[in-house]
Design a protein around this nucleic acid. Sequence first.
DNA 1: TGTTAGCACTCACTTGTTTGGAGTGCTAAT
DNA 2: ATTAGCACTCCAAACAAGTGAGTGCTAACA
Lengths: 342, 342
Amino acid sequence: MEELDERKVKILNAIIRTYLETGEPVGSRTISKYTDLNLSSATIRNEMSDLEELGYIIQPHTSAGRIPSDKGYRFYVDHLLENKDKEISDMKDFVIEHTERMEQVLKQVAKMLAQTTNYATMITTPKSVRNKVKFVQLSQVDEEHLLAVIVMESNVVKNKMIPLAEPLDSETLLKLNILLNSTLNGLSIPEINLGTISRLKEQAGDHSDIIGIVLDAVAETISQEELEVYTSGATNIFKYPELSDSQRASELIYALEEKQQLATLVTENLQNENTGIQVYIGDESPIQTMKDCSVVTATYELGDGMKGSVGIIGPKRMDYEKVMSHLKELTSQLDSIFKKPT
Amino acid sequence: MEELDERKVKILNAIIRTYLETGEPVGSRTISKYTDLNLSSATIRNEMSDLEELGYIIQPHTSAGRIPSDKGYRFYVDHLLENKDKEISDMKDFVIEHTERMEQVLKQVAKMLAQTTNYATMITTPKSVRNKVKFVQLSQVDEEHLLAVIVMESNVVKNKMIPLAEPLDSETLLKLNILLNSTLNGLSIPEINLGTISRLKEQAGDHSDIIGIVLDAVAETISQEELEVYTSGATNIFKYPELSDSQRASELIYALEEKQQLATLVTENLQNENTGIQVYIGDESPIQTMKDCSVVTATYELGDGMKGSVGIIGPKRMDYEKVMSHLKELTSQLDSIFKKPT
DNA sequence: TGTTAGCACTCACTTGTTTGGAGTGCTAAT
DNA sequence: ATTAGCACTCCAAACAAGTGAGTGCTAACA
């Protein structure tokens, strides 16, 4: 298959751009005027016919204009998109009064992104690729409960209540605390292995059982850093007629509500060293219900080895240019946004 | 205005019930057969005409059946609803593997309720009407950060990072901890007043400034027990044609996404000693965008003075009977559901 | 050989008209 | 007081016709 010559590319580009704007099938006449090629609509028609044969555009029905196919969008995103990197309103200032809870920050970011882009958005909690334990403390809360507080290098705090048969005396507690801290401090999850554990238990002597429970709790707590996903702007999809019939809308909103699926979409990105921006067009998305949408995701990194994901879900004819530069901007700022509070 | 005689009531009842089932305007003929009154459609017509004049039912257009008006629903809910208290699938068992985080539990409850009722649901975190401090602890996490951990009587744990100019020595820390615990322990929020505060500061001596910061943090943390609201089953509204045109659906889902509004809907209930089940029909709801829906809320109580709210949002023709008994069942079980974990 | 003008054809969409049926209100008879 | 009967209303579905945007093809042109 011989590839597209320059003129075809120009025409394809014109088609897609105008379609992105209007959302209506675009006809030969329109292109003939819009471009500076000075070609008659007839010529354009011939070229469009070729483009359709090559699979870049589709005719919804016989006597309608053409709309881009998934392949067309793909080509557009891969080759036609100039990286303008326009400057974008500085989010850092706009966004956040210091809330200490990451949850709040994430929700706010999602919301703001949804507002500025007019698409549905999602963001995951950063996942500790290599997060270290910074501080551990056990406290006797009441007769029957021990509270384990774990602070990670990233200043994420986790709590875990541990039921106890009978209270520990304060001396033991102190000993355990010192032991835990001196051993675990600075270790990342993979480093807390059987060796560490058995050594710990040994040193705990009488209370190895408690250490066991605590360690389990710690491990669980740490690893239970499941990706949480926050979404916002779900209703934005109603702004795009091609998505807002109740069948599709329902499915989409359901997918946004059931965050679990979204997580899967994003995890693979985190696994791979896929640091850049990922674009899923239509069927390319692993989530079936999103086959009528495009999904753009980006990973952000928090310096201290935490990685998370931001994503935008919109119609196929989304403004890729704006979305991608927004995401690029955002991911570069998230680090400092998170650092500022604490 | 002379009130409804018995026959009118029966007819109204029949109209509403069949409308709840079908969702279509119901005509005289239908009623004539459905009821055991053995009346001809003509008679029914006369009665219906009366009922319409009294405002209990409406004719969407001249030659259509009748549908209940808000007033009709109101009458139905207030007088016609027998409290069957049918037994309902036991949620306690169904629901919850022990997750220690209340958030998880609430999300699950909302989800399950949405699944069994086929309406949209919401649930708030329990609010401490009279929640007491059980345990406080300051820990030196690193050079520049103090971590305050606060455990409430209800075993809710809150963390607060406090930035420090320079580290405290461990002796001072111990002193502060003892001081805080002995003073605050068992106090509820209103009891931590200026008196307590100044006494505390006095006793803290050199470190009164730190106590100040800590107390602020504690107060903020405690009072910042803002109602969080979790929703689920938003997409259920698409199951009811009268709500699923994109205009309405969009507004509704937006309202569900913007949980803030929902909170307001519910708070007033918590304030009042309104312990029972509250039904808002159409315009009765304080949230404007829900004027086409009915909202049923119930408050649950957790024994230790925590109160929260569960709600169901559905079409006006929701199955009030089922919904109300579900809610009644649920609220009575929530206490033990929460107690079980820890 | 590439480009263009012209023309017939297609097909969704709109508008107007028709028809059927469900439902009502009224009246007269029981 | 109830009911049968009938005329009337009005929505909804079906159908017809007109409109217009857009295409494909062909023949003429540079």
